[in-house]
Design a protein around this nucleic acid. Structure first.
Length: 179
DNA sequence: ACTCGATGTCTTA
DNA sequence: TAAGACATCGAGT
């Protein structure tokens, strides 16, 4: 698997890929080492070799990511490698990908959309394993009466991304972030 | 405002 | 294959 650092106005992100498909994305960090250690963390169960490159086959996507962090409404169109994920997770992520910039949806709505209306909790669980945060906008999925979660990066990140998109959620939301 | 049961899927052993 | 985890929800108190 290959990876490349991407500098954005928010910090240094990482894009990784295999063959010609994107496999992972790491949200921007202050230092390269921090981003790399996050990548290693999410890959901890795999033994695949990791090779750094200076260029990627995804120029459009790199540009879109940089635009995103400048606050531009970006539509990501690059295909993502989801084949290795469990089917349910694929359905959840595909449904989530259709949520437009600046909009929000709920765990329940995603559950309905994939034909499993009572599987709302399972939806949250699957979103937690999204390999490409931002590109598949899992931060736009919230609970019915609360923000929900943002497992690896924490709720602060979810709020930052929603804030950047000027998304408005109901004012009675509990948006307090635990430290 | 808080607890608790039902819920579907995934991971690990 | 069984147990435990989980980014939910709604009803009951």
């Amino acid at each position: 698997m290959f990876f490349k650092y991407i500098s954005t106005s928010w910090g240094i992100a990482i894009l990784s890929w295999r063959k010609d498909k994107v496999t992972r994305f790491i949200l921007p960090q202050v230092k390269e080492e921090q981003a790399l250690s996050l990548l290693n963390h999410v890959l901890s169960s795999t033994k695949e070799e990791l090779v750094q490159k200076n260029t990627s086959p995804f120029l459009d996507l790199e540009w879109e990511i940089q635009q995103y962090f400048k606050g531009k409404p970006v539509v990501f169109s690059t295909p993502i490698e989801l084949d290795s994920l469990p089917p349910f997770t694929q359905w959840v992520l595909e449904a989530t990908a259709t949520t437009p910039w600046g909009d929000i949806t709920t765990y329940q709505e995603i559950a309905k959309k994939i034909g499993k209306p009572t599987a709302t909790r399972a939806v949250g669980r699957s979103l937690g394993s999204n390999p490409v945060p931002l590109i598949i906008p899992c931060h736009r999925v919230v609970g019915k009466k609360s923000l929900g979660g943002y497992s690896l990066y924490g709720l602060r990140w979810k709020l930052l991304l929603l804030g950047l998109e000027k998304a408005n959620y109901p004012s009675d939301f509990n948006v307090s972030v635990p430290e």
